[in-house]
Simulated assay, not measured.
Amino acid sequence: MRTVCFYFQVHQPFRLKPYRFFDIGEDHYYWDDYLNKNVIRKAAQRCYLPMNALLMDLIHQYKGKFKVAFSISGTFLDQMEAYSPDVLESFQKLVATGHVELLNETYTHALAALKSKEEFTTLVKKHQDRIKELFNGYTPKVFRNTELIYSDEIGKMVYELGYEGILTEGAKHILGWKSPNYLYTNALEPKLKVLLKNFRLSDDIAFRFSNKTWADYPLTTEKFVTWLNAIPKEEQVVNLFMDYETFGEHQWADTGIFEFMRHLPEAIFRHSDFSFSTPSEVVRQLPGVGKIYVPTPISWADEERDLTAWLGNDLQDEAFDRLYEIENKIKTIDDPELHRDWGYLQTSDHFYYMCTKFFSDGSVHQYFSPYDTPYDAFINYMNVLSDFDLRVKESKQSRK
């Protein structure tokens, strides 16, 4: 069995509104509803609706032989319900075909796995419940942590929550001479299967597709299949993991990205011995060839494939530590609005905006950030966090 496994991350954060020092204690609503709605609706027209329609066509055209998987964050689900129910319905129809797999993650796309096992478990179970509610009782069996962040210990936590497999990055410094095109197992819990992203082929689509200075531009389906066929016959699975916004947002429609995707399955079926599989099919049908050792967390971000996109400078570390100092306080409070804000403030994007990288990945960080500078992101977030902490303290005092 030689197979291609397509996985798409679908996520949008709740972005904070401009929040001044003088708002602390006065204004307890933090979210930029106008910006969030505009981002969702723009992305819906450019990416979600046309790409979902394209995938539905491919599933019908190939009678279920073409398959994909999604991890849809809870913050995205919440915004779809509020701003774009037509997008939610289109995802529901895709899943109903039986050829689209959903994965679990933390509800708010959080970094909790790095800080609190209890909060991590809470957010995972909340996401489980939300997926079951919105997708007709669907229960995922494979997990995808925020930004593919993974370590041996994180894998162990995921296994204890009942999952059969987990996705992560095929980072070169972890693999060494090994290939990402095999199924591996967790070093601490060998029953947990580990799927590794083939970052070269994934990034050819996600990042290099429209780059006219790239030596292999333009990328055609024939060229891509040639690269697949060059993979040694004994290698089992090519995992193509990317942001869903690759299609229409990061790579605009006029680059030809939709047509590339429309014709890729036919090229693969006609000119290679590869099939398409979902992550759970890979996990159940392929044997793990051995343990993969990841003692220090990895991710799919930037050249380093580490945590420095979110926790790489003093600004990020200060905000992250201050955030989780509140955890024990809020656990004893029964206030839905406080818990909603607590979850949304954990979203990894807030820390991503504070990144101060200025070299190969600096432009990428700037592209995704609504702030002029990382320092602006930090100040705005810390002002909000200060007000949130005051609300938590006041709530605890009112209960005494």
Score class of each variant (00 low, 15 high):
R340D: 11
E318D: 13
L315T: 02
K331Y: 11
G362P: 00
F368L: 15
S363K: 12
L323H: 01
E327G: 08
P336M: 06
K357W: 09
D321P: 06
Y344N: 00
D361V: 15
Y324P: 02
H350D: 02
F359G: 05
N328M: 14
T347A: 14
D335M: 04
Y353V: 10
N328F: 11
G343H: 00
Q366E: 13
I330Y: 05
T332P: 12
M354R: 04
Y352H: 04
D321F: 13
Q316N: 09
Y353R: 05
E325N: 10
E318G: 10
D349I: 06
F320I: 03
F320M: 07
T356K: 14
N328Q: 13
S360G: 14
F358G: 14
F359K: 12
D335Y: 06
D335Q: 03
L345N: 04
T356W: 09
F358M: 14
S363H: 15
E325Q: 10
C355G: 09
E337C: 07
P336W: 04
D317C: 09
T332V: 14
F320S: 03
R322S: 03
S348I: 06
K329S: 10
Y367R: 14
D317M: 10
Y353P: 06
I333L: 07
N328S: 11
P336N: 03
A319I: 05
D349H: 00
H350S: 05
S363E: 15
D341R: 00
Y353T: 12
P336D: 03
L315R: 01
Q346C: 10
